[in-house]
Write a protein that binds this DNA or RNA. Structure first.
Lengths: 336, 336
DNA sequence: GTGAAAGCGCTAACAG
DNA sequence: CTGTTAGCGCTTTCAC
């Protein structure tokens, strides 16, 4: 069943059918009825590919994320997809992993699939090594590129992010104010966002006149898959340095830290305070529940999609928007 | 840059360019070189929509899932997407929520978008009320429909699932063998899969000659968002019945049960044994760690995708494949 | 081994 | 308000 069949049955031209299909005003009510009746009767739906070819768009947005099974990214993808669908766009999801070559390959693939735009979810797509970001610039020459939780200056690139620097600084300051002096910053990613958090931690210490010690900012070389490895990592570290507080760059690391504390028989938060990041589902699953930074994921997703819709609508949109995080206080920290 | 431009620059016809592009054998090595050189030099990529129109396919598969932020579904989506991409297919993700009308709407939408096939992830898409499944039958008339973790007999529908009945029966039997007599089955979904688990629980009891008591199979009317609500639900129940074991239909409910136990000062597993389902990331995040049923998600995803590839390849494929789950024993159950 | 030409099904400019 | 027609860019017969 094509537009020709419909036009024939309705006794009109294909142009008229097309007009009815696309809600054009230039159709008499009578003709419209006639055409709609045929469409209804034949259960006709226009061919999406032909439409795509003509309009050079199929109303699809590419979503790139490193790993959609990661708690944080999964949530982001979920919200973004919801918002986009509400705006009549569909999503092509593409999980790239963490290798640069794969990110390049799949971003390029999406551009070639002629998505209308692409959203890079998570801070992993922007590298500190600037030449590694050329693939983003390249894509931005073709279509708008939106970054969710990353910062990148380039034409046709739009960013929405949480101020991780400020949020981590506030979290660290809070910990200091509860009387915890020696604080570890634990992280397992060197993304822009992770480094901003690190800076926030350092600033808080510096502001209070506490000297920075590199050994208190250990990098855990593993992804969020193996809690025991995290606990072991801390146990090893434990012999050399002393601390009563940990700020982790995500909730999973924080739970790993709690596991370490349990093993060692430390009381949380009396012997060891812990603050996580993301305020994910994990933060309420442990006991005591985890104090964590809420980085406003849902707000961010909402913002990024409405920015995107605005761009595709040819409206002027801000290239960068920054939200503030909030420390959600629970059982793993002392009260002031 | 179109195929015409390339053909002109290479001094051949568009048919030849097309042949080169599609790896046809009927091109002399020399001509091929010439064309490839131009393609390379101009960085030409064929227009995906035009290709789609001609071939009636854009190599995309629709993925329907109720909620991609759900731990279990997120993992499934992740693995399915990985496997599909490895086979040169892309995924359009569509999160439907749990309303029938939305499921219908979005499945239909994907079919109209002319995806090559669609995968329904999770057991929520098949209803006990058979007429509610007509939308699946309808879609199956157009394209192959694959069900991940659901059972449905229909032409052009293919299922892969874990034997939830058997797995739950084994889990329940195990609990009985550790000396726990009064066991609660806690669930929050009436999907086919959830009901199979319920049957498994009942069978295990019956087999041991233990009478079934409906009040020991409470239905928690909430999704996996609010642990406290689960704990409260159990606390309320607690006044009326006595039990020393809980089998939960997913890990989140199980963690909710653990939270209840903590609040009430019960020792796990001495006073209360708990078994979860899915062996998700949550199962190692709590303390003690959760005994849980591993339902072989990754295997299932792998299977479903290779079945799909086979179908699109016109090979004969099994319509139903069933894997067995495995009980992963951790700290929330006693040993035998 | 290569080219000419007929679709694929739709949109939109143009003419009436 | 409606119809005619020329694309959109590719694949695929069918000749040569």
């Amino acid at each position: 069943m094509t537009i020709y069949d419909v036009s024939e049955k309705a006794g009109v031209s294909i142009a008229t059918v097309s007009r009815v299909l696309n809600g054009s005003d230039n159709v008499s009510a009578q003709t419209r009825q006639k055409v709609l009746a045929v469409i209804e009767a034949c259960d006709y739906t226009p061919n999406a590919f032909a439409r795509g070819l003509g309009l050079n768009s199929m109303n699809t947005i590419g979503i790139l994320c490193a790993d959609s099974s990661d708690l944080y990214l999964a949530n982001a993808v979920y919200h973004v997809e919801q918002e986009l669908r509400a705006n009549n766009y569909n999503c092509i999801l593409c999980c790239t992993g963490y290798e640069l070559s794969d990110k390049q390959k799949y971003l390029n693939l999406l551009v070639n699939k002629k998505v209308d735009s692409v959203i890079l979810v998570g801070s992993h797509f922007v590298s500190g090594q600037d030449s590694d970001n050329d693939y983003i610039r390249e894509a931005a020459k073709e279509i708008p590129v939106l970054l969710l939780n990353a910062d990148f200056d380039c034409e046709n690139v739009y960013c929405g992010m949480c101020d991780d620097f400020k949020a981590t600084m506030q979290a660290t300051t809070y910990l200091l104010e509860t009387g915890v002096e020696d604080i570890l910053y634990l992280y397992n990613s060197k993304s822009y966002s992770a480094l901003r958090k690190l800076s926030g931690y350092q600033s808080a210490l510096t502001q209070k006149g506490i000297p920075l010690r590199m050994e208190y900012m250990p990098y855990f070389p593993g992804r969020n898959y193996n809690l025991l490895a995290i606990a072991d990592f801390l146990a090893e570290l434990d012999s050399s340095i002393h601390y009563q507080g940990i700020i982790a760059s995500n909730d999973y690391l924080a739970i790993g830290a709690a596991k370490f504390a349990h093993k060692k028989g430390l009381d949380i938060p009396k012997d060891l305070s812990i603050i996580g990041y993301n305020n994910s589902i994990l933060s309420t699953c442990c006991d005591p529940e985890l104090t964590s930074v809420d980085n406003r994921l849902e707000t961010l997703c909402h913002h990024i999609v409405s920015t995107l819709i605005g761009i595709l609508d040819n409206r002027e949109m801000p290239q960068k928007v920054i939200f503030s995080g909030e420390l959600i206080k629970r059982g793993t920290t002392l009260s002031i």
